[in-house]
Amino acid sequence: MTKPVRPPRRDEQAALLDERIAQALESMLEQDTDITHRAVVRAIEGLSAPSSITRDNYRRSLVEFYQATQAERRQWVKRVQKVSQTNVVAQLAAKDHRIEELERQIAILTASHKAMILAVGEMGGMTAWRRFFEGYEHAWDAVRANVPSERTE
């Protein structure tokens, strides 16, 4: 589930209330307090009824997003509690090793791509290469940031 996007509000007070609700939900999530519409109302001064949240699509979906996030976090905690500390440490070490391995692979791929780009550039094929990457200007910018400019132009 993705976090809902805040809609434009007609007045500043409604936008401020949206922000206060989001802050309260974030706080409840971090403190692992049960997230309910009533709990949000209790946490925010100026709200008197859960319908202030449930009638508004954005606010209702925001609460649902945080409820789902909280349920997912609690499930992860349950899984970790069922597994011994030794196994958790071993799993984390294995994941760290896998991350290091992937980072090495990325470094190798980056170096090989730089070499290929330099070879294409020396042979005069950069115009064709650029045409292939039309619409991917961010890729070209990244390449230019990592390859000497006199060889890629």
Rank of each mutant, 00 (worst) to 15 (best):
T2D: 11
K3G: 03
P4R: 04
V5I: 15
R6I: 11
P7K: 05
P7A: 07
P7S: 03
E12I: 12
E12S: 07
E12H: 09
Q13A: 09
A15C: 01
D18M: 00
D18G: 03
R20V: 09
R20N: 10
R20H: 07
R20F: 00
I21L: 04
A22D: 08
L25V: 07
E26P: 00
S27H: 10
M28N: 03
D32C: 05
D32R: 13
D32Q: 11
D34S: 08
I35F: 01
H37P: 02
R38M: 03
A39C: 00
A39D: 02
V40I: 08
V41C: 02
V41G: 02
I44C: 07
I44R: 02
I44W: 05
I44Q: 01
E45S: 14
E45P: 04
L47K: 03
S48V: 12
A49P: 00
S52Q: 14
N57W: 09
R59I: 05
R60P: 02
S61A: 06
L62P: 00
V63H: 00
E64P: 01
E64N: 08
T69A: 09
T69Q: 13
A71T: 08
R73I: 01
R73H: 07
R74A: 07
W76D: 06
K78I: 05
V80M: 11
V80S: 09
V83P: 01
S84W: 04
S84N: 07
Q85M: 12
N87M: 13
V89R: 13
A90D: 12
A90R: 13
A90Y: 04
K95S: 11
D96S: 14
H97W: 09
E100L: 13
E101Y: 15
E101R: 13
L102Q: 14
I106G: 01
I106D: 05
I106F: 07
I108R: 15
L109P: 00
L109F: 08
L109E: 11
T110D: 15
T110R: 15
S112N: 13
H113E: 14
H113D: 10
K114D: 05
L118A: 05
A119C: 02
A119H: 04
V120T: 11
T127R: 12
T127W: 06
A128I: 11
A128R: 15
R130T: 08
R131S: 12
E134F: 11
G135P: 02
Y136A: 15
H138K: 13
A139E: 12
W140I: 15
D141A: 15
D141N: 11
V143C: 10
V143R: 07
A145D: 10
N146H: 09
V147K: 03
P148H: 13
P148N: 06
S149C: 01
S149Q: 12
E150K: 12
E150N: 14
R151M: 06
E153W: 02
